[in-house]
């Protein structure tokens, strides 16, 4: 009952899972030396968010409230950066976190931000500074990790009911890889398993592309959008040997979202929509169970 109330906002699940991944990296994959990097991402993100709230707040008296509300999102994008983007320069790390957050405020269409903050932060930093990089190999390729991340991610998307996006993208991308590597080229199965059991791909599928704020609203446009991203990412990764292709494709595909939203009209996503409904039902259930226990 307690836990149910705590996790009424799905973003807390995301934070929990991302923190587990980061802990796994720090403990088992020796990312200890990168503590300063994670710290920089988090601190810069939070400070930037606070400044943005002050500068862009509609009602100056309530900026603190809206800042508090936005904290989970800031944490999520900081985790996104920590888990994917590497650099050994302080200013580059600050730049990445700054770009991630500020993009939410200055690049907007119809009151909705265009880019997933951490994806944009990663791409902009790599392209503009040339001093940062992504390494898909940093996870190792333990099949156990694949399984764990998959399950955990599954829960997250189930909760947000955004499973369509993750599964469509993964299904198409992994399917294409399978057809190319196993059916066409004829590699043994473990070759293929290694290609897909990278933490980066799964993090992308479950935590980045699923961001409801930056995906099309309508289910049909969502599916079209995901399939397109999967195809382009597969092409770039397989034939152009581009590392971290999905993240790049996602960023370049996001400006299409407002267009798709115009073509397929529906209500836009609110973090608390479904959740409020859930809380009411939870509350009723809890009340009932309390009553029962008293009886």
């Amino acid at each position: 009952m307690f836990v149910q109330n705590i996790f009424k906002d799905v973003r807390y699940y995301q934070i929990l899972f991302q923190s587990i991944f980061l802990s796994y990296g720090i403990i088992f994959l020796h990312w200890q030396n990168e503590g300063w990097l994670y710290g920089t991402y988090f601190i810069t993100s939070i400070v930037t968010q606070l400044l943005c709230e002050i500068i862009f707040a509609k009602n100056k008296n309530y900026f603190l409230d809206s800042f508090k509300k936005s904290i989970p999102s800031v944490i999520i994008s900081s985790f996104g950066l920590s888990l994917l983007l590497k650099t050994n320069l302080l200013w580059v790390a600050i730049f990445a976190a700054f770009v991630s957050i500020i993009s939410k405020y200055i690049i907007r269409i119809n009151g909705k931000h265009i880019f997933n903050p951490s994806a944009l932060g990663i791409v902009a930093t790599i392209l503009l500074t040339g001093k940062a990089w992504v390494n898909a190999g940093q996870w190792g390729s333990g099949i156990v990790l694949l399984f764990t991340v998959f399950c955990l991610g599954f829960i997250v998307v189930t909760k947000v009911q955004n499973i369509t996006i993750s599964l469509t993208f993964l299904g198409v991308f992994v399917g294409l890889l399978f057809m190319r590597q196993i059916i066409y080229l004829g590699w043994p199965i473990d070759y293929f398993v290694q290609s897909i059991s990278t933490g980066s791909l799964l993090l992308f599928s479950f935590f980045m592309i699923t961001d409801p704020k930056t995906t099309p609203n309508h289910t049909v446009s969502k599916i079209i959008w995901c399939i397109a991203i999967a195809f382009v990412a597969f092409y770039l990764a397989t034939f152009k040997f581009i590392n971290a292709a999905p993240i790049f494709v996602l960023v370049f595909a996001q400006p299409l979202v407002p267009l798709l939203d115009k073509l397929f009209k529906t209500k836009s996503y609110q973090w608390h929509n479904k959740i409020e409904h859930k809380i009411i039902s939870n509350f009723t259930i809890n009340k009932l169970s309390i009553n029962n226990s008293f009886n």
Partner: peptide, 10 residues
């Protein structure tokens, strides 16, 4: 230079 499909360990 880093390996991209295996983990790099110091």
């Amino acid at each position: 230079i880093e390996c991209t499909n295996y983990r790099n360990v110091n």
